[in-house]
């Protein structure tokens, strides 16, 4: 089957996935704040309300806790809701329904139900929106058994992983970095899925593995280009899913390069990098390490408003370059 491939933005790719899901499955519908005529705070739902009507593209009141709960209830009883949070920060208002209900309902009822809900979270800093609109809370949800948590980094994955999420019988939380929405990449027409739980090697290399998530994948690839000119051959692993994590791909990569740098935007402490590091420390890859593992994560602060400070709170390309150079040089 050959599907034509076009350049789409990350936001367009998500929109296309939602349209395909709704076209092919009557049970699928969208809920969220201002996703109808407004088109969503980041224009991801766009004109979908015109195509599918207000019954399937539902504007909710500003009620995150109730809205998320309604989505959970609909999912348990046979529908396939895709719930959009206006900003991932507002997940904090809906934690009860996400963590106590969606994640545990199947388990608590001994497998009598499943909860096929998809929740989308525009995340991350870089827009000057300050401390309550810029967080990266994916590790919070990654800590909860029963949830699957993904962070697609490319338009191709954004579409394929969303379609996989809709098909998944369990709750899938999608963290979409706001700065990725306008980035473009090749996206095939029609239906395809990208598996949840599988990392992707974005660049092969021998000297050093960078495990990155979301927008940091792009920053790592940019750094890798510069490092190549300096004779440092970097392998970039795009983690894509933080729960369940693809141990095998990361372990194999580290066994090959013997050096690991984790780069992620969430706060460094108790974050994704802690889990990746521990995973390596606990595995056979530990014996292959030639240098201590290095983590680059968000600063231990809320995200500040001032633009220079804001940039300084999350890893940037020069930070990755510096960390990679010293890591490549260090060790045995």
């Amino acid at each position: 089957m050959d599907q034509a491939v076009r350049e789409l933005s990350y936001a367009q790719a998500i929109q296309e996935a939602m349209a395909i899901a709704m076209e092919t499955d009557e049970r699928v519908f969208l809920m969220g704040e201002d996703i109808g005529v407004y088109g969503g705070a980041f224009q991801v739902t766009g004109d979908l309300v015109e195509r599918f009507g207000a019954d399937r593209v539902i504007d909710t009141p500003i009620s995150e806790l109730g809205g998320a709960g309604v989505a959970v209830g609909a999912a348990v009883t046979g529908l396939r809701p895709i719930f959009e949070f206006q900003f991932s920060d507002f997940a904090t208002l809906a934690m009860e329904q996400i963590v106590n209900q969606a994640a545990k309902m199947r388990y608590m009822l001994g497998g009598a139900v499943s909860v096929p809900v998809v929740m989308r979270f525009p995340a991350g800093s870089g827009t000057g929106a300050a401390a309550q609109h810029s967080q990266s809370l994916e590790a919070w949800l990654g800590h909860v058994p029963g949830l699957k948590v993904i962070q697609p980094a490319t338009p191709y994955d954004a579409k394929g992983m969303l379609l996989a999420a809709v098909a998944d019988p369990d709750p899938v939380m999608i963290f979409e970095h706001k700065l990725l929405y306008k980035t473009k990449g090749p996206v095939p027409e029609g239906y395809y899925t990208v598996p949840i739980g599988k990392a992707a090697i974005r660049r092969e290399g021998r000297d050093l593995t960078i495990v990155a998530t979301s927008i940091m994948v792009h920053k790592a690839l940019e750094a890798a280009k510069t490092l190549e000119a300096e004779g440092i051959d970097v392998e970039v692993v795009d983690l894509r899913t933080i729960r369940p994590m693809d141990k095998e791909t990361v372990i194999e990569s580290v066994k090959k390069t013997s050096r690991l740098l984790c780069v992620y935007e969430g706060v460094k402490t108790l974050g994704v990098g802690a889990e990746v590091s521990a995973m390596i420390a606990e595995s056979e890859a530990f014996d292959f390490l030639d240098a201590p593992i290095v983590r680059l994560g968000g600063a231990e602060t809320p995200i500040p408003y001032n633009p220079d400070l804001e940039k300084a709170t999350v890893p940037q390309v020069p930070d990755i370059l510096a960390a990679a150079r010293s890591l490549a040089m260090g060790g045995r």
Partner: peptide, 8 residues
């Protein structure tokens, strides 16, 4: 101190 901006 420049940490909050308009929204804060």
């Amino acid at each position: 101190g420049g940490l909050g901006g308009s929204m804060h």
